[in-house]
Write a protein that binds this DNA or RNA. Structure first.
Lengths: 214, 214
DNA sequence: CCTTCATGGATAGCGGCACTATCTAAACAT
DNA sequence: ATGTTTAGATAGTGCCGCTATCCATGAAGG
């Protein structure tokens, strides 16, 4: 497969593919000679993954590069590689620890983890980007006067935990290790838009059930 | 409260506040004379809402303007106003109906709604952005070879529905109509990062439970 | 009253990002 | 021989969320 074919099969312009090659999101093709390179199914698959991460997952190019670096790193063990890929996602600015809302949010989230018995997550509080994101979101809501305490967060957390159980069950069903890592990344990146869409659809459904269409 | 004070109370620079005023995200202050305007608590609250939508919710300025337009539109009835505000959020490119994956995704999602008995949502399929987003996400996953059919989506949808029930219960607990609309917007915009963070945290917890830290 | 400062209003610039366009020299394809 | 395609390099584009500068006006303080 040459560049133009890769472009045709994926629906991505050659200029953009070149850009991805330059940015290291796509490994170079097998160089035949100075002016020809050969691409295969793996390239096509990777290209589709990249596109999905960027367009559906809305990840910046730099993040995609980082995530893929972990996915491809054979030197890492299973769960580290998986975690590394997921942790490259952050997207969240560091919370300002001096801010009173942030401090309050910290306490609420810690209380939540205690209440749920999420002892593992508790160990990661200082480093996990997910934990940081949660604090930032709770702080933003508190700043607006919405009191999202552990009590109110708990039922949501419970539902999200069940979602995570589904995720991991699917993960374990994947046949190969390489596929599991890719699946894990997809589960984190692409399932989120999917969950978001389901959530909004459910909101619409429930709103209509309660109040009709007007 | 004058501009500088508004800036101090919110932590947003005066230049940025001026920008928001220009962009119509913030109503102008009460004009005292040619060079002074007075802002009040409402402005502060609105400013914080805007910031939260932009920074936590990652909405583009144009979308924020649109959402706020609906929030402020007193001529609309309750659920329309609510829906209008929520529907301004999409962020999703139109799916290409000629694409085979998109068509397959359409069918799967339709089957899902039947299976769940979401008859109201079914009526909205042609217009709801949430529906479109779902189709796009499912299509992207199918393109990568992941077969997310109605069967696999259903348990997730079930969990998201419960989440939506929690959302609406909270909504009904809000005392005033204006607050309900604002709360609905926040529920759609700010709860999502919150849910996402909870989801990831739950994934980390569950991964650690199953495999430990190595 | 005079100085210093903040204000609204207008306009221009900036930095980041995801491409996109243009060029070149080399190598096929017919 | 001629037109097309390639890799590789570099420059440009369009959007977006600010940010900076300038201005005339007027308020606040001594």
């Amino acid at each position: 497969m040459r560049l133009a074919e890769l472009s045709r099969h994926s629906g991505v312009s050659t200029a953009t593919i070149k850009y991805y090659l330059r940015e290291g999101l796509l490994p170079p093709g097998r160089q035949i000679n100075a002016t020809t390179a050969e691409y295969d199914e793996e390239h096509l698959r990777r290209l589709r993954l990249v596109r999905a991460m960027i367009q559906v997952g809305r990840l910046p190019v730099s993040t995609v590069r980082e995530v893929l670096g972990h996915v491809d790193d054979d030197s890492l063990g299973r769960s580290i590689r998986l975690g590394a890929a997921l942790w490259a996602l952050p997207q969240v600015p560091e919370p300002d620890e001096d801010d009173e809302y942030v401090r309050a949010a910290h306490q609420e989230v810690a209380a939540l983890l205690d209440r749920l018995g999420w002892h593992n997550a508790k160990l990661l509080t200082t480093i996990s980007p997910a934990y940081r994101s949660l604090v930032v979101a709770v702080a933003a809501l508190r700043r607006l006067g919405y009191d999202w305490g552990a009590e109110r967060l708990a039922p949501y957390a419970e539902l999200m935990h069940r979602t995570a159980v589904l995720d991991l069950d699917h993960l374990e069903a994947q046949p190969s290790e390489a596929e599991r890592v890719e699946t894990a990344v997809l589960a984190a990146i692409l399932n989120e838009p999917l969950l978001r869409a389901l959530h909004r659809l459910a909101q619409e459904e429930e709103t209509a059930r309660r109040y009709g269409f007007e």
